Computed example of a mutant assay.
Amino acid sequence: MTTHVTDMGSPEAEHIRNTERARLRALVNGDIAQAEPLHAPEFQLITPIGMPLSKDEYLGAIRSGQIQYLMWEPGAIAVREHEDHAVIRYRARLEIVFGGHRVAPADYWHTDTYERRAGHWMVVWSQATAISEKR
């Protein structure tokens, strides 16, 4: 069993990066039909404020406009892949409207766990952490 840590890339790592970028585009565009198959049925997001959201809760909030991404710009996506599992990590700049309140653009770390199922990569767990400007 070999674990590959790739920053530049194996073809599979690049495929995982492209899947994540497609997922982000779908979320920013509010395109639930595109986002749905990229999220595992048991998907769970842990938000920057520590709130867990299931797939239905998360995509439902985007569908209803409760969560609206105005911008989600990922930086370089680091990938650790192992057979049918992968973990990705990246820093991104986001601007979001949550519950009708615009949140100022800010930087976040994202860590996502992907699994390959029936030949397709899908995100299972996702966690976002706000990056404090104070040091």
Score class of each variant (00 low, 15 high):
residue 61 A to D: 02
residue 76 A to W: 02
residue 41 P to D: 15
residue 83 E to M: 07
residue 132 S to G: 07
residue 38 L to E: 02
residue 119 G to N: 03
residue 81 E to K: 09
residue 46 I to L: 14
residue 50 G to F: 13
residue 37 P to N: 14
residue 70 L to Q: 06
residue 72 W to T: 00
residue 37 P to C: 13
residue 112 D to M: 11
residue 28 V to P: 09
residue 4 H to K: 14
residue 68 Q to Y: 01
residue 76 A to L: 02
residue 65 G to T: 03
residue 104 A to W: 07
residue 114 Y to E: 02
residue 15 H to T: 13
residue 116 R to T: 00
residue 81 E to F: 05
residue 128 A to G: 15
residue 69 Y to D: 02
residue 113 T to F: 14
residue 125 W to C: 12
residue 2 T to A: 14
residue 46 I to W: 04
residue 117 R to C: 07
residue 106 A to S: 09
residue 62 I to H: 09
residue 75 G to M: 09
residue 70 L to T: 04
residue 4 H to I: 12
residue 38 L to T: 00
residue 39 H to P: 12
residue 101 H to G: 14
residue 59 L to H: 06
residue 51 M to D: 10
residue 89 R to H: 11
residue 95 E to L: 04
residue 118 A to F: 08
residue 31 D to T: 01
residue 26 A to F: 07
residue 87 V to C: 11
residue 114 Y to S: 08
residue 10 S to K: 06
residue 18 N to Y: 09
residue 62 I to T: 03
residue 20 E to T: 06
residue 29 N to K: 13
residue 107 D to I: 02
residue 18 N to V: 12
residue 79 V to I: 01
residue 19 T to Q: 07
residue 100 G to S: 07
residue 48 P to R: 10
residue 30 G to Q: 02
residue 18 N to L: 15
residue 37 P to M: 13
residue 104 A to T: 15
residue 9 G to K: 14
residue 70 L to R: 09
residue 120 H to D: 08
residue 88 I to R: 01
residue 127 Q to V: 03
residue 4 H to L: 15
residue 63 R to Y: 00
residue 32 I to G: 09
residue 40 A to V: 03
residue 1 M to C: 11
residue 110 H to N: 07
residue 107 D to K: 12
residue 49 I to T: 10
residue 20 E to L: 13
residue 37 P to Q: 15
residue 7 D to T: 15
residue 14 E to H: 14
residue 92 A to G: 03
residue 41 P to C: 15
residue 128 A to R: 08
residue 110 H to M: 08
residue 33 A to C: 05
residue 45 L to V: 00
residue 104 A to E: 14
residue 33 A to T: 14
residue 11 P to F: 15
residue 6 T to W: 12
residue 11 P to D: 15
residue 96 I to D: 01
residue 5 V to D: 00
residue 124 V to L: 12
residue 42 E to L: 15
residue 109 W to K: 03
residue 3 T to N: 04
residue 26 A to S: 09
residue 32 I to N: 07
residue 31 D to R: 12
residue 60 G to L: 10
residue 37 P to Y: 11
residue 80 R to W: 10
residue 110 H to Q: 10
residue 94 L to N: 00
residue 47 T to V: 05
residue 29 N to H: 11
residue 8 M to S: 09
residue 93 R to A: 02
residue 9 G to Q: 10
residue 47 T to C: 10
residue 15 H to P: 08
residue 16 I to E: 05
residue 87 V to Y: 08
residue 89 R to F: 05
residue 109 W to E: 12
residue 48 P to Y: 12
residue 77 I to D: 02
residue 80 R to G: 09
residue 128 A to Y: 05
residue 89 R to L: 06
residue 69 Y to W: 07
residue 29 N to Y: 01
residue 77 I to K: 01
residue 68 Q to D: 05
residue 25 R to H: 07
residue 132 S to E: 05
residue 113 T to W: 14
residue 29 N to W: 01
residue 118 A to M: 06
residue 52 P to Q: 04
residue 49 I to D: 06
residue 127 Q to S: 03
residue 15 H to W: 13
residue 3 T to M: 15
residue 70 L to C: 02
residue 30 G to T: 00
residue 117 R to Y: 10
residue 97 V to W: 04
residue 108 Y to W: 11
residue 31 D to K: 11
residue 108 Y to S: 04
residue 27 L to C: 04
residue 83 E to G: 06
residue 75 G to I: 10
residue 8 M to E: 11
residue 124 V to F: 09
residue 76 A to H: 03
residue 98 F to M: 15
residue 119 G to L: 07
residue 47 T to A: 13
